[in-house]
Amino acid sequence: MDADTSTDHYTIRSPFAHTGLLCTKNVAEDLQRLASPYLPLQPGPSDPGTWRVASHATPPDGAVAESVTALGEVAVDYAVDHTERTLFHLAPRGDAWVTQSLLRATRAIHRSAASRRGVLFLHAGLVELNGLGVALVGGSRAGKTSFIMASVLNGSGVMVCNDDVSLTVDPVAGPVTGTGWPRSISVRLDTLDLLFGPERARSVVTSLSHPANETLPSLRASGIEQHGTALIYPWEYADLLGTEIGRSLTVDAIVHLSLADEPTDTGFSPVPPTGRGALLDRAVLPLPNKHLNIFGHEPDPAGLLRTHTALTALPTFRFRYSFRDVRHEVDRLADLLRDQLSP
């Protein structure tokens, strides 16, 4: 049981929605740090009729049970009162899990609202690479996280998000804007070894505060994740790399990223306009949230089509890189993009 369970009201806002929080002061302070710079938190109650997320509160008898389990993590239990539009966190207890649970639920509400506004969600990271906004598209284990971290360490990159970027296009001015969301960053352990050396990498892992890091080693032991992973909160990522995190960025180019099996398999090639749509569709997320999709997410077809059309008009490339030489490969891609996109 937490030492202080007295709760207060807070509001979180985004361009798509605002939601209420009912939680302790300690949880609110931790959540504000985790949500920055994406979702600002302010003291005070939200407007009537908006969704609220509550901890240390008893749900009514008619609330519907919901349980969410991410791979390698413990189950998180909620109860949902649809009439009063309130989601209650039930378990596990302890400030670390309560904070993580409330952040996930708040993010899910706002991403669902964004989906109804025509926002397109893409399995991609977004980084400012030597002044260019680059969407790095690829599925799990495509090397996005390793590449983005290496770009920041090289001094040429600023991360907006590591994965699941949301994209919109201004119907008048036309540029595509990518926006990040507060979510933990899943990093391969051999990426940390490669970038920092084994000794410092071990120190980094033991210092991390995400509660799921206590259970994630089971994925490596079971063979599901052969390299092992750790979850890093955005503020820990910023501290580790000595950087700031951007909230949004104009997208100048799309790069479909993959890892080469051998150094001789690396390569860079433009994607012709006729092949961009099908390649992009493979990375579009059909749901705005990986696990907690209970808030409605009926997309706006006109907005999605407008964004999809604008994305396929952007310069698009394939880049296959060598994991072991990632810091050199960051510089190589930056040079290639500068050559391709120069007026």
Results as ranks from 00 to 15, higher is better:
Asp4Ser: 05
Thr5Leu: 12
His9Met: 08
Tyr10Gln: 01
Tyr10Val: 02
Ile12Gln: 02
Ala17Met: 03
Cys23Tyr: 05
Glu29Leu: 14
Ala35Cys: 11
Pro37Ala: 03
Tyr38Ala: 05
Leu41Gly: 05
Pro43His: 09
Trp51Asp: 03
Val53Glu: 05
Ser55Gln: 10
Ser55Ala: 15
Pro59Trp: 06
Ala63Val: 08
Val64His: 14
Glu66Trp: 13
Glu73Asp: 12
Ala79Tyr: 10
Val80Asn: 06
His82Ile: 00
Thr83Trp: 00
Glu84Ile: 00
Arg85Ile: 04
Thr86Ile: 08
Pro92Ile: 07
Trp97Asn: 13
Ser101Asp: 04
Arg111Ser: 09
Arg111Gly: 02
Ser112Ala: 13
Ala113Leu: 01
Leu120Trp: 01
Phe121Ser: 09
Leu122Val: 08
Leu122Asp: 04
Leu126His: 05
Glu128Met: 03
Glu128Ala: 06
Ala135Ile: 01
Gly138Met: 12
Gly143Phe: 11
Val158Cys: 12
Val160Lys: 02
Val160Ala: 02
Asp164Lys: 01
Asp170Gly: 07
Gly174Lys: 03
Pro175Val: 03
Arg183Trp: 01
Ile185Ser: 02
Ile185His: 03
Leu189Trp: 11
Leu192Phe: 09
Leu192Ile: 12
Gly197Ile: 07
Gly197Thr: 04
Thr206Pro: 00
Leu208Glu: 07
Glu214Asn: 11
Pro217Gln: 09
Ser218Gln: 14
Ser222Gly: 12
His227Ile: 11
Ala230Pro: 05
Ile232Thr: 10
Val251Gln: 00
Ala260Leu: 13
Asp261Lys: 14
Arg282Ile: 04
Val284Lys: 02
Pro286Tyr: 10
His297Gly: 00
Asp300Tyr: 05
Leu305Ser: 14
Arg306Thr: 05
Thr309Ile: 07
Leu311Val: 08
Leu314Ile: 04
Arg320Pro: 09
Tyr321Ile: 05
Tyr321Lys: 03
Phe323Gln: 10
Arg324Trp: 14
Arg324His: 13
Arg327Val: 01
Glu329Asn: 07
Asp331Trp: 09
Arg338Leu: 06
Asp339Val: 06
Leu341Asn: 08
Ser342Gly: 14
Pro343Tyr: 10
